[in-house]
Simulated assay, not measured.
Amino acid sequence: MELVPFSENDAAQLCAWIPDAKANFQWGGPAFSFPLTPDQICTHIAREEVAPYLVKHHQEAVGYIELFRVSDNEYRLCRVLIASPTQRGKGLGHQLVALALEKVRVIPNVYKVSLAVFAHNTAAISCYSSLGFVVLPDHTKTRFFNGESWTLLRMERWL
């Protein structure tokens, strides 16, 4: 598995991986509207603090992740996605996050990596915990999707 720079040419593929409004919200939170469009993606990845990556496994694009610069000392993992539901639960997410952590480790002066995850996404929480992330109980938030309340957890780890 490898992370390769994501480009505007990959935006249509990413949009195709987000099948419905619920998946869109789980992946992108309130930052994107559904249906997700290449224009939304291209506008987002043009931001200076966003470093997007396409995830390739056996030369095939299988996912996406962003490194978001929060400050000179902190990066946030955002929009983590293994595209095919049939490929989830096989350790690809663990490999993906480990590769992202390797990229952050070589950035000078960065000592903290954070992320946000919905509390009902227990598989993701388990993955992140196995890589040393811990939940910050004082940073819990609530987001609303279609009248439902979704608890958003903040997790972090030190490098």
Rank of each mutant, 00 (worst) to 15 (best):
Y53V: 07
K112W: 00
A123D: 12
A100L: 01
E66R: 03
E49L: 09
Y53C: 05
L67Q: 08
R79D: 05
C42W: 00
A123S: 12
H44S: 12
G93S: 04
T122D: 07
A116R: 09
A83K: 05
L101D: 01
C78A: 15
V106T: 11
A116W: 15
L54V: 11
K112G: 00
H120A: 12
V117E: 06
V135R: 05
F34S: 01
K112A: 02
S129M: 09
V50C: 08
G132K: 07
F118K: 03
S33M: 11
S84H: 02
L77D: 02
G89E: 09
V113Y: 01
C78G: 11
V80A: 04
L136F: 05
C42Y: 00
F118A: 06
K112H: 01
A61P: 03
K103F: 13
V110M: 02
I82Q: 03
K103A: 10
G132L: 11
I45D: 12
S71D: 15
L92V: 13
V113L: 01
A124S: 13
V113E: 02
A51D: 11
A51G: 00
H120L: 13
L92Q: 08
S33D: 09
P35R: 12
G89K: 04
T37G: 06
Y64I: 10
A100S: 02
D72V: 08
Y128C: 03
E48M: 08
P35M: 14
R79T: 04
T86H: 10
A98K: 07
Q40N: 06
S126M: 09
E66C: 06
A116Y: 15
E48T: 15
Y75C: 08
A100M: 01
Q59N: 08
R76E: 13
L77I: 01
K56L: 12
L131V: 11
K90H: 13
L136N: 12
Y75S: 06
R47T: 08
L136V: 14
A61L: 00
S114F: 06
E102Q: 15
A98W: 02
F34H: 06
Y53N: 05
L101C: 03
E60C: 01
S71Q: 14
T37F: 10
L136P: 01
G132H: 09
V117K: 01
S114R: 02
L54M: 13
N73H: 15
P52L: 14
K56E: 15
R105S: 10
A124W: 10
P85V: 14
V55A: 07
K56T: 14
R105Y: 09
A119P: 02
E102C: 10
P35C: 14
L131C: 05
F133Y: 12
A119S: 12
S129H: 13
P85T: 13
G93R: 05
R88Y: 13
I65P: 07
H94S: 03
L131G: 04
G93N: 06
A46K: 07
T43Q: 11
F34P: 00
A61I: 02
K112C: 04
A124I: 12
G93E: 04
L77Y: 03
A46S: 14
V80G: 04
F133S: 04
A116Q: 14
L36C: 08
G89A: 07
L81F: 14
G132S: 11
L115Y: 07
R47N: 13
Q59F: 01
K103Q: 15
Q87D: 15
G132E: 11
K90Y: 11
T122G: 03
D72L: 14
I45V: 11
Q59L: 05
I82R: 02
P108N: 10
E48Q: 11
S129W: 08
F34V: 05
L54P: 02
I41E: 00
